[in-house]
Amino acid sequence: MTRRRDRITEALWAYAFIAPIALGLGVFYLWPVLQTAYFSFTEWGAFGGHEWSGADNYVRLIHDSEVGRALVNTISYTVLGLVSIPLAVVFAALLNRKMRGAGVYRTLFFLPVVTMPVAVAMVWRWLYNGDYGLINYLLSLAGIDGPNWIADPATALYALVVIGIWSSLGYNLIIFLAGMQAIPAEYYEAAALDGAGPVRQFFRITLPLLSPTAFFVSVISVIGSLQLFDLVFVIAGSGASARANPAYPRLQTVVALFYDRAFVTNERGYAAAIVMVLLLIIAALTLVQFRLQRRWVHYA
């Protein structure tokens, strides 16, 4: 009898511990997801009301060339940004040893990760400046006449990718370092006894055993890149001023378009449909990665 009462008391305490956050997550996160899904089937009037419009938003979306461009930009940015992963593996391998200054290097690589993205975007915008930017000055020393990076449709997206890699490299590196440190030292000792040098050890031991980490990092990077917003907002602006930039069609991402539709032109039903598509793309790409992992990920 007392046992039963104890169990009931324990459950009641558990609900009391969970209640505050369950309420908050329900009101601010779970219910909003359902509402956004519903909004994607509605049209919003100028004064905030909305009415059911069936699949209209989705039909409009398919024919909207701006959505198409934003999708192409976002996916290109995401795919090109994956270069950060092999780079991070190489630098993690270089740092994964006892040596002088390892901590300092690690800190320097990590600085961009903790820096406010708005500040990062401003600094790079200045570095990329066509007339007075440091990058074009350095290029001019080599006799190259650099373009107007972020205002030139031919280079704008690549310029964005470079910022993305610079700011995520340290983060990926830390995760790879943790993965490398989890590999038992005996494997390397055995390989060394068999006469395998450091390069062979890297390809035969480190890389295969690191593949689960690499898989994890690639899933996280893809999800993060697909939501790119801050950099674009600061580099290209939004609304009318952004459209003045000839490179804007190459910079606008899905989330930037969502911001524009939801809070600049106030087409919230349409904006909801745009993020529903984003949700589908993220889910699909994550699923594809989980499917593909069987071909290259080795679990020890």
């Binding site: 369950a22 997550l25 909003p32 997801v33 939501q227 909801a272």
Partner: peptide
Amino acid sequence: VLFGLFLSVLMVPPQLFIIPQY
């Protein structure tokens, strides 16, 4: 079930919360 519901919040891109939160 509750923990599963909590985890499902983690899977959703945060932009889906914004309009209703606003």
